[in-house]
């Protein structure tokens, strides 16, 4: 019975089987293209609009692609607005935060994976708690903390906050990495006469490197995008970050040039897109891995 019903299935005929496979392929490729389109179109539109002169953007006969592509929007972005200063501020803040977070959290993650103390369990739980905490509930207390330290409206204050809030995430990501490195490697080299520091430097660090890179990229991109603390702790345009600065364009009631805004959008996204394009292989393993094992 079983065999008979199977033979009745038209797809068991080799010719139809081939047809079915082709149809399947077409559907799969179609869906893949659709997914890519959905992901990329808004960005593509921003890019196109950033090289469209405002005369065309504001005209009613706008064509999909600009008739006279121009870089004027980028020029006015850097000449008229303080965008260059914001970019520099964000670059400094994100870089310093990333370096400090990766160094401190690798050290701590190493200690937590190698030394067994009961108190480390509590530390791990506190770290998880800090990691899960919504930034918004920290904003008011941190505002008053910085106010007392006279660090409101200062980049140093913002830097401390960024390090403080990113550190728990970095530590949580790196902890699972360091736990995955076999302890025997290190013990072997210490038996051979290396000090602990040498063992850490020569044996552990190279092993943990991919994890550190992915933590670094993650920290950098999150800090680069940060808006909440920047918008609340900084009032002075000169000390603002890109996210906080460009947001002030939006909150003006009128938007004076969509072209310039779109150019700003491209410039803010570009560093992260480039970073990602060059570091892709570290990312998928690192972000997925760290979070799942966590």
């Amino acid at each position: 019975m079983q065999i008979q019903t199977r033979n009745l299935n038209i797809f068991q005929d080799p010719r139809n089987l081939k047809l079915k496979r082709i149809a399947q392929r077409i559907v799969l490729y179609g869906l893949m293209i659709l997914a890519v389109f959905w992901a990329v179109f808004p960005l593509f539109w921003v890019l196109i609009s950033s090289v469209t002169p405002d005369i065309e953007t504001y005209s009613f006969e706008r064509t999909f692609l600009p008739k006279n592509p121009t870089l004027d929007n980028y020029i006015s972005l850097f000449k008229i607005t303080p965008f260059a200063v914001w970019m520099r501020n964000s670059a400094v803040l994100s870089t310093v935060t990333t370096v400090v977070v990766v160094l401190l959290s690798s050290m701590t993650a190493y200690a937590m994976s190698r030394f067994r103390y009961k108190s480390f369990k509590i530390i791990a739980q506190l770290t998880l708690l800090a990691y899960m905490m919504p930034a918004i509930i920290l904003v008011v207390p941190i505002f008053f903390l910085l106010f007392r330290l006279n660090l409101i409206n200062s980049m140093l204050g913002l830097l401390l906050v960024y390090i403080g809030t990113r550190l728990s995430v970095g530590l949580w990501m790196l902890r699972s990495y360091f736990q995955g490195i076999p302890i025997e490697l290190e013990e072997q080299s210490m038996v051979d006469g290396a000090t602990r520091f040498q063992a850490f430097w020569k044996i552990i660090l190279p092993q943990a490197f991919p994890g550190m890179i992915s933590t670094a990229i993650f920290t950098f991109s999150v800090t680069w995008q940060e808006f909440l603390f920047a918008s609340i702790l900084i009032f002075n345009s000169r000390n603002q970050t890109v996210s906080g600065g460009v947001a002030t364009f939006i909150s003006e009631d009128w938007i004076y040039s969509w072209g310039t805004l779109m150019a700003a959008g491209v410039m803010i996204s570009l560093p992260l897109v480039l970073l990602y394009a060059f570091m892709q292989k570290y990312l998928v393993a690192g972000w997925g891995g760290g979070a799942v094992k966590g």
Binding site: M32, A35, V36, A39, V40, P42, L43, W45, V46, S49, T57, Y58, R62, S221, W224, Q225, F227, V242, S243, V246, A247, I250, W258, L261, M262, A264, G265, I268, S269, L272, V273, Y276, A277, Q280
Partner: peptide
């Protein structure tokens, strides 16, 4: 395709808000 599909994850909230405001703008 895998690389491209992950793009939106990298786009800062400020840019997303700008983009959608622009796309949905009533006149332009």
């Amino acid at each position: 395709a895998r690389g491209l599909v992950l793009f939106p994850y990298l786009i800062p909230a400020v840019v997303i808000s700008l983009t959608w405001r622009f796309i949905l703008d009533p006149t332009l």
